[in-house]
Simulated scan of single mutants.
Amino acid sequence: MRLNQATDYAFRMVLYLASLPEGTKITGAALAEKQNIPERFLLKIMRSLTAANIMKSYRGVEGGFALQRAPKDITLFDIIEAVEGQTELQRCLHDVGSCSKGCSGMCSIYAAFAGIQRNLAKQLKSYNFEDLANQEKAIKNAEEAAKAAAAPDEDKAKAE
Rank of each mutant, 00 (worst) to 15 (best):
L124E: 03
R69D: 05
K125R: 12
Q5G: 08
K72E: 15
R12Y: 09
L17G: 04
A32N: 12
S108E: 14
R118P: 00
K34C: 01
A138Y: 03
M13L: 13
K122H: 11
L124V: 05
A6V: 05
E39K: 09
G64P: 04
M13A: 04
A10I: 01
N128V: 00
I54L: 09
V96Y: 12
G102E: 08
D153L: 13
I116F: 08
Y9A: 15
Q123D: 05
I139E: 07
S104W: 09
N36A: 15
R2E: 07
K156T: 07
D73F: 11
A121L: 11
G115D: 15
Q35R: 07
R12Q: 15
C92H: 01
N134A: 01
K56A: 09
K122F: 00
A157D: 00
Y9H: 15
A10N: 04
N134W: 06
L42R: 02
C92L: 02
E130K: 13
I109P: 02
I54T: 06
C99N: 00
G28I: 11
R118S: 05
L42H: 01
Q117F: 09
T24V: 10
C99W: 09
K137F: 11
E136H: 14
L76C: 15
C99E: 04
F77T: 00
S108A: 14
G105C: 06
K34M: 06
C92N: 02
T7P: 00
E88Y: 14
D155A: 03
F113T: 10
P38L: 11
A66G: 02
Q123N: 06
R59Q: 10
A82S: 05
Q5S: 06
